[in-house]
Write a protein that binds this DNA or RNA. Structure first.
Ligand SMILES: [Zn+2]
Ligand SMILES: [Zn+2]
Ligand SMILES: [Zn+2]
Ligand SMILES: [Zn+2]
Lengths: 138, 138
DNA sequence: ATATGTTCTGTTATATCATAACATTTTAAT
DNA sequence: ATTAAAATGTTATGATATAACAGAACATAT
C-alpha cells in the first residue's frame, strides 16, 4: 500500500479514497473480479456508485501498474508484485477461478524476439493461459 | 474454403450458408471485426439477423479452428492457416487496426514450459501483442 | 488569501458486447 | 415413415463499458 502511494506520486497523481478502496478489494480477492463485482463490494461501505467510478479507478490502477486487466475474462486483478516495472503473464484456472501472476522471462523474451523479427513495435502484451491449476487437478 | 468444408465434416458438423458467409466476411476483412460489424455486413444480403446468429456462427468457426477470437479487442478474425492444428499468436496494430496471425514456436514453447513448471494443465493460450506494425512506422 | 489550472468526483444517460430460453426447421440415419 | 441430432429463428435480457458535463478538491503561483 505504501508502494501504491509512491507510484501514484511518481506519476504526479493522487492515491485517493476510491482508488485505495478498489485496490484493497482487488488484493483481498482470491480471484479476478469483474467491474460490477467491485461495485457490489464498494456498495457495502456507501451507496452504490456508478460504474464510471470503478472503471476510472481501474484505469488509474492499471496505469500505475498496481492492477492488471484480464482481457480473456473481462476481469481485473491486483498486481502481486507492484514494486518496479514488470511484464506479467497469467495462469487462469477454469475450475476454481484463480489467476496466478507469473513473470516468465522466457515468454517475455520470445515475445520480444517474435515482434522484433516482424518489425513490430510493441506497446502491450497480453499473455493469458487458461486451464487447470495444480490445486484443482486432484 | 475447401478446408472449411473438410474440417466441418471431420467434426460431424455442417458448413452451412450462414457459417460460410460469416467466414467469407472475416476473410475479406483486412482487420478483426466485432460481432456487430459482421451483422452489419450480413444485412447487405438479407434482413439483419439477430446477434445470436452471428455468435453461433462464430462459436462454430472457432471450434473448427477456422477463426479466432481476439480477447483484447472483443473482435474476431479469420484464421490465416486453417489447415491442421496450430497455436497462434497475434500482432495487433493500434494505428491501422490490422492483426497479423503468427505461429511463433519459441513463444509456444516458453508458454508450455512455464505452465509445466507451475504444474498447470493448459487448455487455451491467449497471446496478443499490441503496438505499431511495420507499415505504420513511417 | 485568492486566482488559476489541473485532477478528481458525481451523475445521468447511452453504447457495446454477449447469452438465455424456447419454438421450429432441416438433415441424416434407421 | 420414424427418430434423434443439428441448426435456425426470434424475443428478450444480461453483462460490460464509455460519453458528456457539472461541480468539488487540490496544488502552486502570484
Ligand atoms: Zn503485476
Ligand atoms: Zn484451480
Ligand atoms: Zn489460425
Ligand atoms: Zn499498422
Amino acid at each position: 500500500m505504501k508502494t501504491a502511494e509512491n507510484k501514484s506520486r511518481a506519476l504526479g497523481l493522487r492515491f485517493t479514497k476510491t482508488r485505495r478502496k478498489v485496490l484493497e478489494i482487488l488484493w483481498q480477492s482470491h480471484s479476478p473480479l469483474g467491474a460490477y463485482d467491485i461495485l457490489d463490494r464498494l456498495q457495502e461501505d456507501s451507496r452504490r456508485p456508478a460504474p464510471m467510478v470503478v472503471y476510472r479507478a481501474l484505469d488509474f490502477l492499471i496505469e500505475a501498474g498496481l492492477a492488471h486487466r484480464l482481457s480473456s475474462r473481462n476481469a481485473f486483478i491486483g498486481c502481486s508484485a507492484p514494486e518496479g516495472d514488470h511484464e506479467a503473464q497469467f495462469l487462469i484456472c477454469n475450475h476454481c477461478g484463480s489467476a496466478a501472476e507469473v513473470e516468465a522471462r522466457p515468454i517475455a523474451k520470445a515475445v520480444e524476439e517474435t515482434a522484433a523479427s516482424a518489425g513490430f513495435h510493441v506497446h502491450q502484451r497480453v499473455v493469458e493461459i487458461t486451464g487447470v491449476c495444480p490445486n484443482c487437478q486432484s
